[in-house]
């Protein structure tokens, strides 16, 4: 049986001059359709590298990624990425940033009017319609991430890749965005792979949490299923015993068994 998305025995060795660093070692992971998977681990362990390999932006040294039976060997809109630093094009308006992606992906299959409508629809999903004519420099960090999310959703990806999408945001904005992402996942049923530093965020959003050991030669240390029914309510979860137990497990993994060794 093959899974929806399979990361198969991936190793990644970076060569700089004649020093070789093995960042990832023997990463194997199956992701089901519609599943929300989080990857958590200390800084520098290779989370972004793993995500970039799935995105096709970085090539695995050995092993590979198979998505819906097809080997991933280049980037493409079926694996849309929301980057940590939003990566909006500053010379385009919010609308045009999303429209660029829509035009590229649906240029042949949708008419002009349909593409316009689809762009607005996705901006509406992330509640950004009101700022559609603004430029990225005129909106807040949280809004930029919303636009980045709209752009990624507009590509109708097979898997949505989120690289610390809320990392640079303040706690309140982050809370709002988490709720937005959770709502969208419930509504659209996307398959999501998200990188995070935040234990509560991982437990709140994920079906499974992939905990990575420290690099170099980072591996998957433990996989935790989060058996909390959806829709999940943030306020109810605070006292939910399952939530607390999951949170405990991840904290133990990160701060007892795999403490961050280097001086940060």
């Amino acid at each position: 049986m093959t899974s929806y998305c399979k990361i198969d025995h991936v190793d990644k060795i970076f060569t700089r001059g004649n020093t070789e660093t093995c960042v990832l070692k023997e990463i194997t992971l199956d992701i089901e359709k519609g599943e929300y998977v989080s990857i958590i681990g200390h800084s520098g362990c290779g989370k972004s590298t793993l995500l970039n390999i799935v995105a096709g932006l970085t090539e695995a040294t050995t092993g590979g990624v198979i998505l819906e039976g097809k080997h991933v060997n280049e980037p493409g809109p079926d694996r849309a990425v929301v980057f940590q630093n939003h990566s909006l094009l500053p010379w385009l308006t919010v609308y045009d940033n999303v429209r660029l992606a829509v035009d590229k992906v649906f240029g042949r299959s949708k008419s002009r009017a349909e593409r316009d409508e689809w762009t607005l629809h996705n901006l509406n999903l992330t509640q950004m319609t009101h700022a559609k004519d603004k430029r990225p420099s005129e909106i807040s960090g949280g809004m930029k991430q919303r636009v980045g999310l709209a752009r990624a959703l507009a590509m109708e990806p097979k898997i949505l890749l989120l690289d610390e999408p809320f990392g640079a945001l303040d706690a309140l904005t982050r809370t709002h965005l988490q709720d937005t992402v959770m709502g969208l996942h419930e509504k659209l049923g996307n398959t999501v792979m998200m990188i995070t530093h935040d234990v509560d965020e991982a437990v709140l959003l994920s079906d499974r949490i992939i905990m990575m050991t420290n690099g170099p030669e980072a591996q998957i240390g433990e996989i935790l299923s989060v058996p909390i029914a959806r829709p999940r309510r943030r306020l109810e979860l605070v006292t939910d015993p399952t939530f607390l137990k999951c949170r405990q497990r991840v904290l133990e993994f990160l701060y007892e068994r795999h403490r961050f060794v280097e001086a940060a």
Binding site: G76, A80, S87, L89, W91, K104
Partner: peptide, 27 residues
């Protein structure tokens, strides 16, 4: 690199990359 990544994910062809990313970014 971020803009190049965006272009790669969108699979912009060289001409589109020149017009839509390079020229405005280097303007």
């Amino acid at each position: 690199q971020d803009y190049r990544n965006v272009a790669a994910v969108l699979r912009l062809n060289p001409l589109e990359f020149f017009v839509k990313i390079m020229v405005p970014a280097a303007a």
